[in-house]
C-alpha cells in the first residue's frame, strides 16, 4: 500500500500505470553501476520515480572535471566519494526510498555479492570490460540489464533480458580500445533517461522494451535510429549460460 504522502508524490505518474504500478516500483531493488554521467541521470530519475531500493556503486571521488555532466555531485562534494555524494542527493530528492551507497570497485570477485537483493542492473559504466562483467552477472542470475553508453553528442541504448534476448556480447563481441571520450551532460541525460524508461516499463509491464533493438541517438543531427540484432550462436558469453538463465524466474515482471 502507498502512504498518503506517496500517493500525492507519485500522482502524476500513477496516471500512467496506476497505484499498482507504483507499488511494483516500490518493491523493486535496483543496482546502479557507476555514479558518473550516465549513473547520475539514471539515479536521479529512478529515485524520483520511486524505485524502492537503490544500491549505487562507485569507487571514485568527485573531481572538478566531472561536474559538467555528473549532476549527482556539487561543488561542495569535490574530493568526496561519489557514492556518498550520490547518497545525499538521492535521499534529498526522495526520502521515501532506501538508498545504499557502496564505495567499491566492481569486480569479478564482488559482483555477485553487490547484486544480492537487487532485481535490475543499470549500466552507468564508462568502459566495456566492466560492461562485460555486468552482462555476465545478468546472464548468470537472470536479471535484466539496461545498457547505455555515450560519446560526445551520441549515445546508444538497449535492453538485455536473459533467456529472452541476445546478450551484450552478442551485439558487441569485441570492445573498442580504451580512450578518453568527450562527454556532454545532456547526452548522458538522454541515454540515462532511456535506460530508466526501459526499467519503468519492465517493472510495470508497460509498452515494448528495447529487446534485440539497439537505439542510436545522434544529438548533432537530433535523430534516433534503430538497429535490430539477434542472439549470436557463437557468443562466448551466452551460448553456454542462456540455457541456465531461462530457468530463473523473471523478477520484476510481477
Amino acid at each position: 500500500m502507498l502512504s498518503e504522502e506517496e500517493t500525492r508524490r507519485y500522482a502524476r505518474q500513477t496516471l500512467l500505470f496506476g497505484e499498482e504500478g507504483q507499488e511494483k516500483l516500490k518493491r523493486s531493488s535496483v543496482f546502479i553501476a557507476g555514479a558518473g554521467g550516465l549513473g547520475s541521470a539514471i539515479a536521479f530519475y529512478m529515485a524520483a520515480a520511486g524505485f524502492g531500493r537503490i544500491r549505487i556503486v562507485d569507487c571514485d571521488a568527485v573531481d572538478l572535471s566531472n561536474l559538467n555532466r555528473q549532476i549527482l555531485h556539487a561543488q561542495v562534494d569535490l574530493g568526496r566519494a561519489k557514492a556518498l555524494s550520490a547518497y545525499d542527493a538521492l535521499s534529498g530528492i526522495n526520502p521515501e526510498i532506501e538508498v545504499e551507497a557502496v564505495v567499491e570497485r566492481i569486480s569479478q570477485d564482488n559482483i555477485k555479492e553487490l547484486l544480492q537483493g537487487c532485481d535490475l542492473i543499470m549500466d552507468g559504466m564508462d568502459n566495456f570490460p566492466m560492461r562485460y562483467l555486468l552482462n555476465r552477472a545478468a546472464l548468470e542470475s537472470g536479471r535484466p540489464l539496461f545498457h547505455g553508453a555515450i560519446s560526445g553528442y551520441q549515445g546508444q541504448a538497449t535492453t538485455i533480458i536473459p533467456g529472452r534476448t541476445a546478450c551484450l556480447s552478442c551485439l558487441f563481441p569485441r570492445a573498442p580500445p580504451p580512450a578518453t571520450f568527450p562527454a556532454l551532460g545532456s547526452t548522458c541525460g538522454v541515454i540515462g533517461s532511456i535506460e530508466v524508461t526501459e526499467a519503468v516499463k519492465y517493472v510495470t509491464g508497460k509498452g515494448r522494451l528495447l529487446e534485440n533493438r539497439l537505439l542510436l541517438w545522434d544529438g548533432l543531427d537530433s535523430r534516433l535510429e534503430e538497429m535490430a540484432y539477434e542472439p549470436n550462436a557463437s557468443c562466448r558469453e551466452c551460448s553456454d549460460v542462456s540455457a541456465k538463465a531461462v530457468g530463473f524466474t523473471q523478477i520484476g515482471q510481477r
Binding site: 557507476g34 554521467g37 552507468g124 553508453a149 555515450i150 560519446s151 549515445g155 570492445a175 562527454a183 557463437s234
Partner: peptide, 24 residues
C-alpha cells in the same frame, strides 16, 4: 563480421557501419 563479410549486397541495400560507444 567474422562470417558475413562475403555477403553479396543487392541494389538499394543499406549498410550501417560504426564503432560501439563506450563512454558513460
Amino acid at each position: 563480421p567474422e562470417q558475413d563479410l562475403s555477403r553479396i549486397l543487392a541494389e538499394g541495400d543499406e549498410l550501417a557501419v560504426f564503432p560501439p560507444l563506450a563512454g558513460g
